[in-house]
Amino acid sequence: MEPFEPTIVAFVCNWCTYTAADLAGTSRLSYPKNIRLIRVMCTGMVDPQYVIKALLEGADAVLVSGCHPGDCHYINGNYKARRRIRLLKEILPRFGFEPERLRLTWIGASDGIQFAEIMRDLTSQIRAIGPSQTRQTMII
């Protein structure tokens, strides 16, 4: 059997984490191909529904990543994102999703090295906890 390779959906903000991903790329830093980046203008627009949809569609983990507190291009979108993640952390584990499968990080535009490191760490953590329950369950 092939070793388990997780699929991780990452909602990254245009101004910080996406720029960091870009920097990691132009700096020729490698990070796992398990990460599927979805660029959004701000983490403040990541409605819980998109996180839930990604998990139900088979993502083994979802990462939301934006600007450091105080650095949000739209002043406070990341603070709103943090509340939504707090909310989802209350809901998803009730239904058997391990808390590790939903993560929030702040990765600034100049943090290319950190971006690659965090993606590597996250991937190995999710690889360690194994596939999400959605892979074995018929989703209605």
């Binding site: 009730r94 239904f95 058997g96 074995q136 989703i139």
Partner: peptide
């Protein structure tokens, strides 16, 4: 009765 996805479904 709903503590995992299988039960929730």
């Amino acid at each position: 009765a709903t503590s995992n996805l299988k039960k929730l479904t």
